[in-house]
């Protein structure tokens, strides 16, 4: 079969599918749901928790989808200056009361991951791991930069529903042939709520210095199982059964390596010690009946533990990613 044959064969697919897609209303999802679909839920969870890591520990961060495809930017020879100006120019929006940049850093590790189009880059995880961005085509590693920014913004709530707060966002830049830099993509911006204390300063339970091998992950596993079982509340899911769930040392270490030392982790005050003792990956195999079709999946969920209360909070990284077949 080739592409022409496939597209021709598509002509005779079931009428119901064709008509169903015709009736997807503009600006709305085409599936009436009791709650957002499981996949939307996943995306929100991933966005809200992966980037706003501390927010998962101290309270859920609110997803704030600002500036996507709407940067006001002037190409600059200085990548930091470019991002600084893009953030400052948020003031030109009539709903912005104030904006203050807290920190802007180049993130070499994220730059490399994006250049390699690795599935664990923040961009791939949060925006969906699809085709390599066209903007990267023909670029050398030196012509690409990932820049991490943290800023505080206040909005006029008579004009926008956006919440005020300190936002975290990655900007992705490429260098033009003229030598200037331009933003070609960004992750969603997330609001980080006020911390009761920095993770490193929190009063830790007495056993938090125990090694990972000695830690009891049964509560973390229970949190994941409870989250998966709740999917039955979604309109498109009729049943979920769980086959297996366990702490995954390998995935935990991989996540640790991915985070430690990054500008993102440093900006949030997450030390290697904190992440080593309060992060866990749980691998779970389950069968989900979605739209009547059973599908068995093995997913890995990344959790963080509140050092003060000891409670685990679910996140989702590996399970959300869907690396393409090479």
């Amino acid at each position: 079969m080739n592409a022409s044959l496939f597209l021709q064969a598509m002509n005779d697919v079931d009428d119901a599918f064709i008509w169903q897609s015709e009736h997807s209303e503009p600006g709305k999802k085409d599936v009436p749901v009791k709650y957002p679909s499981r996949f939307l839920f996943r995306a929100i969870m991933a966005a809200a928790i992966i980037i706003a890591f501390a927010a998962t520990v101290y309270g859920a961060g609110a997803l704030l989808d600002i500036w996507n495809d709407r940067w006001l930017q002037t190409p600059s020879v200085d990548p930091i200056q470019l991002v600084q100006e893009a953030i400052d120019r948020q003031m030109e929006k009539d709903y912005t009361v104030s904006v203050q940049v807290e920190e802007i850093l180049e993130d070499e590790a994220e730059t490399q991951r994006v250049y390699d189009w690795a599935p664990d880059s923040m961009l791939a995880m949060l925006n969906g791991y699809g085709a390599r961005p066209e903007a990267l085509e023909g670029k050398t590693p030196e012509e690409v930069k990932a820049v991490y920014a943290r800023y505080t913004v206040v909005y006029d709530h008579t004009k926008t529903f956006y919440r005020d707060g300190t936002l975290y966002q990655y900007f992705y830049l490429v260098q033009t042939t003229e030598g200037t830099w331009e933003i070609f993509e960004s992750t969603d911006a997330l609001e980080l709520q006020t911390f009761p204390s920095e993770p490193g300063d929190a009063s830790l339970p007495a056993d938090t210095e125990a090694s990972a091998a000695e830690t009891d992950y049964s509560e973390a596993i229970a949190v994941v199982l409870e989250m998966i079982e709740r999917w039955e509340a979604f309109e498109d899911v009729s049943k979920v059964t769980i086959q297996a769930a366990a702490f995954d040392q390998e995935q935990t270490e991989a996540a640790l390596q991915r985070l430690v030392g990054t500008a993102f982790a440093q900006g949030n005050g997450w030390t290697e010690d904190f992440l080593t003792h309060h992060m866990a990956a749980i691998t779970v195999t389950y069968t989900i009946w979605q739209d009547g079709n059973p599908q068995t999946e093995t997913a890995c969920y990344w959790l963080l533990q509140d050092p003060a209360s000891g409670a685990w909070y679910p996140s989702e990284i590996t399970g959300f990613m869907d690396a393409p077949e090479q």
């Binding site: 169903q20 897609s21 997807s24 085409d30 599936v31 679909s37 996949f39 739209d291 079709n293 599908q295």
Partner: peptide, 8 residues
Amino acid sequence: ALPVTERS
């Protein structure tokens, strides 16, 4: 076998 949204 696709979820409704993906199929549409």
